[in-house]
Amino acid sequence: MLTAQRAPRTLDPADGDLLAAARRDASAAEQAGRLTPEVAAALTRAGFPRHFVPREQGGAAGEFGPLVTATATVAEACASTAWCAALFAAHGRLAAYLPPDGRREIWAGGPDRRIAAAVVPPQGRAVKERDGWRLDGTWRPASGVDHADWVLLASWVPAPSGREHRIFAVPRSELTVEDTWDACGLRGTGSNTVRAEGVRVPEHRSVPLQTLLRPQPGAARCHTVPFPMVAALIFAAPALGIARGALRAWTAERAGAPARHPATHTVLAEASARIHAAGLLLDGAAARADRGEITALTVAENRRDAATAATLCREAVDSLFRASGLRAHTPGSVLQRAWRDATTLASHGTLDTDAAARAYAEAVLTPEV
């Protein structure tokens, strides 16, 4: 007799008091250099790690639009929490490209496994053995690794074409975490270094990165979208929440006071317009990923729009920070943290506007074969 499957939980930042916990522990995460266990548990209850997990493993196989919305909402409370939440979701999507036995092993205990990753650029060393691979070396950064159950690592390996960028899934318990994360912003992400010493990975827990560029026949929509179409989108989502939170804090500081200086009008109007435009760009990119046609042009459009959105958010936060004077330079300033977080986030290689522009120009000016 067939039994009815339970419907997967909907992604909900309010579930399990994630927003309250993230806001309460934001300073503690900054000081410790990692999320608190309570926040890590809350983001799991909210459904981030399971969001892209295949339905066969009990996951939601969800859409990109809800992830962008939820991530931005969390980022208004704590950027580091939002960053880890978005990447735990994204890495579940990457792991879904593993061979069937690998997927079953990772999610044998349920779809809420938290997965960290250091897959771009390839690092460490992978040596082929008879029944799999042997990994040695270090990989960094791996955001959220202190709270992860599994880690995806990538190395160059020999291939018929010369070399191949290959991903390996490793239990967190088989790796050593080195506390190396001490950045200006996103300090609570715990984006530390992991070390492998003779770690053996069976073949079913390995996949070429090239596989992530090809549609998977019969898979859910989120598993047919090529990696370059959504990588920048996911990294840019926290920037939107950071900017919205900064705008709210800046406006609250001036509530009820007359805006005598003309610059106040300009800063408020331009920053809010940039943030609004960034939201529209990310919504459009998410809609393409969820329902649009997948072509070289739409992939490039998503990269262009996500990188531009992150830049707009950084510019908005920067203008608000500079217009706040000495208040923003005091310890505990919400605007100072937002400025550090937005600046660090926008410097991520995936959000490089020059690279995105080059890809877009190639897609527009070079006819597809």
Rank of each mutant, 00 (worst) to 15 (best):
L2V: 12
L2H: 14
L2S: 10
T3Q: 13
A4K: 13
R6N: 08
P8K: 04
P8G: 05
P8A: 15
T10G: 09
T10W: 05
L11Y: 12
D12Y: 09
A14G: 06
D15P: 00
G16H: 12
L19C: 06
L19K: 04
A20E: 15
A20S: 14
A20R: 15
A22E: 05
A22Y: 10
A22V: 09
A22F: 13
R23K: 13
R23A: 15
R23Q: 13
R23W: 08
R24T: 10
D25Q: 05
A26P: 04
A26C: 10
A26S: 14
A28C: 02
A28K: 12
A29S: 15
A29N: 06
E30V: 05
Q31S: 14
Q31C: 02
A32I: 02
A32M: 09
G33S: 07
R34L: 03
R34N: 01
L35W: 11
T36R: 10
P37A: 02
V39R: 04
A40I: 02
A40M: 02
A40W: 06
A41G: 15
A41H: 11
A41Q: 14
A42R: 15
A42N: 09
L43K: 07
T44R: 15
R45N: 00
A46S: 14
G47T: 02
F48M: 01
F48P: 04
P49A: 04
R50T: 06
H51M: 03
F52K: 01
F52Y: 15
P54Q: 03
E56F: 13
E56Q: 14
G58L: 06
G59C: 09
G59R: 07
G59K: 07
A61Q: 11
G62C: 07
G62H: 04
E63V: 00
E63L: 14
E63C: 03
E63K: 08
